[in-house]
Design a protein around this nucleic acid. Structure first.
Length: 359
DNA sequence: AAACCGGGGTC
DNA sequence: GACCCAGGTTT
């Protein structure tokens, strides 16, 4: 892909001018400290601004600087992250904060290599913090940049391919304004977020329409070209809501894998959710070694993950008896029902809990 | 290179 | 439903 057909300096000037006048006011913008940039970029990985905003406010309030964050308790970080997804980010955020105070004297490192060495910091976050907070001339490549550049240059190759990513990276490297790399990067991402959107891009309001091959060809929405993702894995669960003496049983998932370290209701996998009631006591006995009084079963609920389609029924059980045993979870707790208000479950089991309280 | 890892907005 | 989002890590 060649840049011969686009004049770089006018492109930079027009984009930066547009950004100066049209950027959203966001709490991590316009500050001299790197910490708000660092914190926000963790929250924004695969997450839209509007979804991350309330979490940013909670975190910046509870942990206003790197010292406070590094001193935080992992359980508190995980609890504050609940509902945002990709929970490894929360653990990595804390690990990175501790390494910054330990290895880097409390300052985000100034080299790409050192930034990449931090947990949870990949190519995107490293270049984002270095360019936005330190004004270093690294181009950022995120979903917005891929979309915008694939339209401007009408890139027909599959953007899931590494080779296509390299093409886009080279283009971004040549386009970036080395005087204002941070503003340039933010401007390109902002353009993707509010003008050059995935569906129905607002080409008539686009400041760089005159540079855009796909836009001028009325084909913007046909880009980027992206192959279909693999089909979702299918899971079926019975989720046990087990009550006893005014409390309900919760279990903590292992520290790795899906929903690592999150609290939830114990569950059992099943082949079919339909043959429910008769099989349930045996399933509970086999999986957790206990018996109980089966009160009711919810309709089939569904939760969609990026790579899993989970269908499940909540099962309400009273008066559990027997010795609990299970290899999967690392911890159990009987949570008083009066304290469930301020406990945040991962979203699938929050739906199960909502079914119960709406009974 | 491919698989794994959430949740929510939007059409 | 399908798509995609200010991606990173592991295999």
């Amino acid at each position: 892909m060649s840049l011969n057909t686009i004049k770089i300096v006018p492109f930079q000037r027009i984009l930066l001018t547009w950004f100066r006048h049209n950027q959203r006011s966001l709490p991590w913008r316009g500050q001299t400290d790197w910490y708000p940039v660092f914190l926000s970029e963790f929250l924004l990985q695969q997450t839209r601004v509007q979804q991350a905003l309330p979490y940013y406010e909670k975190f910046i309030s509870a942990y206003p600087d790197i010292t406070a964050l590094a001193a935080a308790d992992e359980d508190d970080i995980l609890a504050m992250w609940t509902g945002l997804g990709y929970y490894a980010r929360a653990r990595n955020l804390l690990k990175a904060a501790r390494q910054i105070t330990g290895r880097f004297n409390g300052h985000f490192p100034h080299t790409y290599k050192e930034a990449l060495s931090l947990p949870g910091i990949g190519p995107y976050t490293a270049t984002a913090v270095l360019s936005i907070a330190y004004n270093q001339p690294y181009p950022v490549i995120d979903g917005n940049v891929i979309r915008v550049l694939s339209r401007i240059f009408m890139i027909s190759e599959d953007t899931r391919l590494t080779s296509t990513r390299k093409t886009i990276e080279q283009l971004a490297n040549q386009l970036i304004d080395k005087q204002q790399p941070g503003h340039f990067n933010e401007a390109l991402m902002e353009l993707g977020a509010i003008i050059c959107t995935p569906r129905r891009p607002n080409c008539s309001s686009c400041p760089v329409y005159s540079f855009c091959r796909a836009g001028q060809s009325k084909q913007a929405e046909s880009f980027p070209v992206r192959s279909r993702p693999p089909e979702k894995r299918k899971l079926n669960h019975f989720v046990f809501l087990i009550r006893q003496n005014g409390a309900i049983l919760l279990a903590r998932r292992p520290a790795t894998g899906l929903l690592a370290g999150m609290w939830e209701f114990p569950y059992a996998a099943t082949d079919n959710l339909d043959s429910a009631p008769a099989e349930l006591p045996g399933l509970l006995q086999k999986t957790y070694g206990i018996k109980g009084k089966f009160r009711s079963v919810s309709p089939v609920l569904q939760h969609i993950y990026s790579h899993i389609r989970l269908r499940y029924r909540a099962v309400l059980i009273d008066d559990a008896a027997g010795k609990f045993k299970n290899k999967f979870y690392d911890k159990f707790v009987w949570k008083p029902l009066t304290e469930m208000d301020n406990l945040r479950l991962h979203t699938a089991h929050a739906k199960a809990w909502n079914w119960l309280i709406e009974q």
